[in-house]
Structure formats: C-alpha cells, structure tokens
Design a protein around this nucleic acid. Structure first.
Length: 619
RNA sequence: GGGGGCGUAGCUCAGUUGGUUAGAGUGACGGCCUGUCACGCCGUAGGUCGCGGGUUCGAGCCCCGUCGCUCCCGCCA
C-alpha cells in the first residue's frame, strides 16, 4: 500500500515451473493483464469481511493491498475463515476481473481480485494492542512498545520509506558534488565542550572510558588535514541531553560534511544545491527557496525576527522603536530608557479585544514579562490616530514616527516588547511575532523558506559565572586580524564581545537544520581563542591534543556544516514529531520500551568492566 | 531540576452539580447474511475509573500525595 507497485524482487513465475513457496507477485502488483493467471500472494490480513456466503480478505504487504475472495464450498475456506487481523497468510488462486460495479478505484489493484484456491497460515496474531488498520492516534508508550505493529500502519510505513529515499537522494547529490563518504569511529574520546557524553567503560583499561561522539567534529577536521578535500557522512551522533519533540534523546543523524580550501560562500554554494534539490524532489507541489538562500547576519535576525532561526514564511518584521519612547513628547515612563521592540500585527484593528488580551496574558504568564503593550492604528479625520490603553501617551508626531519605523498603516496594530536587557526584549518580540503570525493566519503553508544566519558572535558574557564563554562553536575562525587577535587582552570585554565568527546556521521554516563554520586551523589562534574563554594553554593542549597536534603538521583552511537528517525528513514529511520519521525511537525519558533499554548489567559484566553501581539514595 | 496537559474496557473516547447496576464505538468471541472494500444485522464476554490517602451519608467526578506518558523551560559548543 505504500511502496511503488511496479517494484518487486522475487523470482518471476513461469507456467509449468514449480511455484515459489511464498509468492509469485506482491500485493501491490496485480492488474487487469494478470486476469486468468494462477498466482500466489503472501501478506498480512489487513481487513476481513465475512458475508456468510462470501468471505473477503484484504491481503497487505510492503507494496500494496489485494482483495482476495473465497466461498464456503471451497476447500481452503476453513483456513481462511479462521484468519484474523494481522495474521500472515499465503494465498494461491486465480486472478479474476471484477465486474464494473465492484471495481475499487481507491486501490491500484482494484480492478482485479484473487479467487482463493489454496491457503496456508504462516503466522497467527494475538488480539492487537494497537490496530494496524485506520489512522487514529494512540498513546506513545503503546506505540513504542509495539513499534513493529505501529510501523505496519500506512502513515508511518510511508514516512520511514520516505526517510530512506531522502537519505539516498542526499547521498547521490553529495557524491555528484564531488564529496566522498567516510566512516568515523563510534568509540572515541570524551569531548570537554558541549553536551553530556555517553560513556563506555573500557574492559582492558580499568577506570578508563570511551565516549560516543557528539558529532564527528574533530575527525572530520582531521580528514581535511589528511588531504581528503571533500568529506561527508550520514553520521550518527550521541548526546546525553533531554529530549524535545524535534530532538531525539540520545542519538540522531547528521549530514556531516567538511571541505578544504573554502570560504564561507564556497560551503554555501556546495550545500544549497543539495538541500534545494532534495526538498524540490520531495516537495509535492510545495515551493522551495531558490539558491542562493538569503544570508541574514545574526544581529539583523535578532532585531527583525527576535530569534536566530526565523520562520521567513511569517511576513512580520520587528522594528526597534526605543528612540520613539525616549522622545520628550512621549510620556510613557514604563518604556523610557529601555529597549523597545515593535511587532506589527497587520490588519489587527478588526480583531476583538480578546485577541489583544490573550496575547498580553500569554506574555505575562508564559513568558514572565510585565505584559505586551499595544497600539491600534486607526484613521481619524484623515489622520493617523492611536487607539488602546497606552495610545494616549503617544502624541501624533511620535505615532507617525513609529508607524514609519515599523512600516504599519491604518488598520494595523503594533505590539511592544520592552526590557532593560536588549536580549530579553528581542526574545519576547520574537515569540510574539510567531504567535501573532499564527493567530492572524499570516504564515503560508506549502513553502520551504531557507536562509543562512551568518556572523554569529564568537563569545558572550556569562553573567552567572562572571566569565567569557564561547557563544557557539569554539572551533570557528574569528573574523579578526590574526596578529591583533593574538594580542587581545582577555579582560577587554568590549572588544571580545564584538568579535564575530565565521559561523553560520542554516534555517528552514523556523527550524535550525544545522550550524557550521569555517574552522580555526591555526594552533596559535586556537589556543588564544580558548584562553579568552578561560582555558589554560595546557588544558587546551591536553583536551584537543589530537587536533592541535595535527594542525602543527600543515593544516589546510577548511570548513563545513552538518544538517540534521531527522529534521530534514520531518519538514519534508510535514510532521511535528521525530518519532514519526524514526524507525525505532526512544521515549522522552530516553528508554527503548520495545527492547527494554537501558537495563541493569549483570554482576559478571560489571566486574569485567571494573564498575560498581552506586544508586542515588531514595527520597 | 522546574512548569503545563493527559491517565475510564484490548484500542479510541463519553460520563451532567458528587447520587441507583460506569456507557458508546471499535476489536475479541458466537450466530445470521453471495459483492463488500470502515460491509451490514443480532447476541455474549470484557472495568482495581493509573496507584495511595483524605473530605462526604455517598467519589470516575472534590482535596492531598504519588506513579506513568506527553509538551515546554533549563540543557542541547
């Protein structure tokens, strides 16, 4: 029912030669041309319809569904009659044409049916904990425990098949672009930055541990040092962090890639045709951003969209109106001296009061903000007039300036996000933009809108620990003169916080597909970069010994990125949850309910690994 | 670690203000039916209302606790 009906990988059947033990055709294959042939099908009972004098069985396999029919007088009747949903049967019989009035147009095989002459049961099924037939929602734990049944269902079967096709398409396109696929180790060393590692104890080296790779980051850079020029891999990555709907617990796959002797634009030029091509191939009528994708500097994105992963299907653009509230003729004290961001709500003047109240409540309760002020722009005697609780504080001249800055007109509204901290004002505005866009139905479906976010800051100030942190990827090359960078004083916060990196994200419809960078391949600059983030030279030397050492033997300039496979497939499949495109996913608590993992280890195993388990004390 | 939602038959759900014996659909089982394709009709079985405690004459419903699932925040260089 889900695969291509034309495809089959079973020996052909010739009259006079013994019939294949299980099937001569797939359940998606039979057509009018087969009428009169004696054939054999194997598959699952999708549906059974008993008419007393006539019994229909819809037999299903990977390729489709074929209706099979038998009458009580037939010798095989007893066997077919006892079969229930999801039993596995082998049915042999003659293909017959259906009469005009019994043709099923919804079924590719609907012009014919199999008149059953022989039947055998290959596998029985207990009463189902999860019906395969139908398209209802079921509890996640039941679905996961009986994943093999869930996977038989049409939607999931189709998604998983789609995933495979997307991966093959990616692989083909990468190879066409001159990339070579290599595998990198799964058992490797712990990486000190970033996510929590999964550790694997060493039997041979008591007290020592391997770590599963969070990403093949260092390996792919070493592959460049080794002179392989263009590498890619559909790479498994392991991170021991909590899950989200679009973030698997434990493990996920990336299209990991790296290139030598490239600038940022070269990486974009290599990735764009691959992503555009894959999305176009599976778009089914949805539009895909043409290459080159827009490039948006991080600072601009934070201002205009309030996030570093903007959904460009949403037409709302945020404006900074701090200066308007600082005007002397504007007497609204609550916003004075703060960063004020204005979020346009096109056409919102016709919205009921509850629309505004609901957004205000959301800002207060969900976002912990003091509120979301607003002004509605109306026409009063040919002039622009403000309406709403705070409109009286804003005289016409200021209102006009605001309208110009935020590009709003009569009939629109403006919401305000204000905070003493610029980042917080931007973040609330970003969330409000998403909500307003959705509430007003402004986000167009049926489009894939890509963009690159570029020029990420290299560092950020960590207020809690009073220190400078890497803001994203510590291996990125700073956009800074080499000699001046090496001479930087780590306490020169103003300069350091202004440094951008050759670091970029690719975003589609508000979902971050990957981040990437032109790497820092200069050992001195790397040591300095880590020194600024508070790592002593010896520490950096030790933690990244392999990579630093390699960089001292002739390292090419290189860069890359790593789009998430799961998220790409989610977007293409149009689903909100990773479990819909992952064959055997874990639940939110990082458990595999089908295989019962994680599980206790035996004492023998622990002893071999020199491990003693110390459980947390019960509360 | 924190916050929200959900938990009633194998499965999907309903269950009024706290009031008699907790219902429906689907699946299972049995019977009838020769053209259905979500076949139809009749019947039967199936319940620790997640678990524990409390309030009450009386709790699926209210309160407290707890467990499970899920979504979000933290976290994810």
């Amino acid at each position: 029912m889900t695969g291509p009906p034309a495809t089959r990988h079973i020996p052909p059947f010739f009259e006079g030669i013994a019939m294949h033990a299980y099937r001569t055709h797939t359940c998606g294959e039979l057509r009018k041309v087969h009428v009169g042939s004696r054939v054999r099908l194997s598959g699952w009972v999708n549906r059974r319809r008993d008419h007393g004098g006539l019994l229909f069985v819809d037999l299903r396999d990977h390729y489709g569904i074929t209706q099979c029919v038998i009458e009580p007088e037939a010798t095989a009747f007893a066997t077919v009659d006892k079969a229930r949903s999801e039993w596995v049967l082998t049915l042999t019989g003659t293909v017959v044409a259906r009469t005009e009035d019994t043709i099923n147009k919804d079924l590719p095989t609907g012009e014919v049916e199999l008149r059953i002459e022989e039947a055998s049961v290959q596998g029985m099924a207990l009463e189902l904990p999860l019906p395969v037939f139908g398209d209802l929602d079921y509890p996640e734990d039941v679905r996961l425990k009986y994943r093999f049944l869930d996977l038989r269902r049409e939607r999931l079967h189709k998604n998983i098949t789609l995933r495979s096709k997307v991966i093959s398409s990616i692989r083909r396109r990468m190879i066409e672009q001159g990339f070579t696929e290599f595998q990198t180790p799964i058992l490797t060393a712990s990486s000190p930055e970033g996510a929590r590692d999964f550790l694997v104890p060493s039997r041979i080296h008591p007290g020592k541990f391997y770590a599963l790779p969070q990403a093949p980051q260092q390996f792919k850079q070493l592959i460049m040092v080794a002179g392989f020029d263009r590498y890619f891999q559909i790479a498994p990555c392991f991170r021991d962090e909590d899950a989200r709907a679009d973030r698997s617990p434990g493990e996920f796959y990336q299209l990991d890639l790296e290139m030598s002797f490239v600038t940022q634009d070269d990486v974009f030029a290599a990735v764009e045709p691959v992503l555009h091509g894959v999305f176009e191939e599976f778009s089914e009528g949805r539009s895909v951003s043409p290459a080159p994708f827009p490039r948006i500097p991080y600072d601009v994105s934070m201002l205009k969209y309030g996030v570093d992963k903007p959904d460009l299907r949403n037409p709302i653009i945020i404006a900074d109106v701090s200066s308007v509230f600082d005007r002397e003729d504007v007497v609204f004290k609550a916003f004075k001296g703060k960063t004020v961001r204005a979020i346009p709500a096109p056409g919102a003047a016709t919205q009921p009061r509850s629309f505004f109240d609901k957004l205000n409540d959301w800002a207060r309760t969900d976002m912990g903000a003091p509120g979301l002020g607003y002004v509605v722009f109306e026409n009063e005697g040919g002039a622009l007039a403000g309406k709403g609780p705070i409109a009286k504080f804003i005289p016409p001249a200021a209102l006009a300036e605001m309208a110009a800055k935020a590009d709003v007109k009569t009939g629109d509204a403006l919401f305000f996000s204000a905070d003493t901290k610029r980042d917080r004002a931007a973040a609330l505005a970003g969330q409000a933009r998403i909500r307003i866009g959705r509430e007003l139905g402004l986000v167009k479906e049926g489009e894939f809108k890509f963009c690159w976010i570029v020029d990420f800051p290299m560092y950020e100030w960590n207020e809690d620990e009073k220190k400078i942190d890497f803001s994203h990827n510590p291996f990125s090359m700073p956009q800074f003169d080499r000699e001046k960078f090496l001479a930087l004083d780590p306490v020169d916060r103003a300069t350091i916080e202004g440094i951008k990196a050759y670091q970029y994200d690719i975003v589609c419809n508000g979902i971050e597909l990957s981040s990437g960078a032109i790497r820092n391949h200069d050992p001195d600059v790397m040591l300095k970069a880590f020194e600024i983030a508070g790592y002593a030279r010896e520490e950096t030397e030790q933690k990244f010994a392999g990579m630093l050492n390699a960089f001292r033997y002739g390292a090419p300039p290189h860069g890359g990125t790593a789009p998430g496979i799961d998220r790409i497939v989610m977007l293409i499949a149009g689903v909100e949850n990773l479990r819909e495109v992952t064959m055997f996913p874990m639940n939110q608590q990082a458990q595999d309910l089908m295989m019962n993992a994680p599980n206790e280890a035996s004492l023998k195993q622990l002893r071999e690994l020199h491990i003693r388990v110390v459980l947390p004390e019960a509360k």
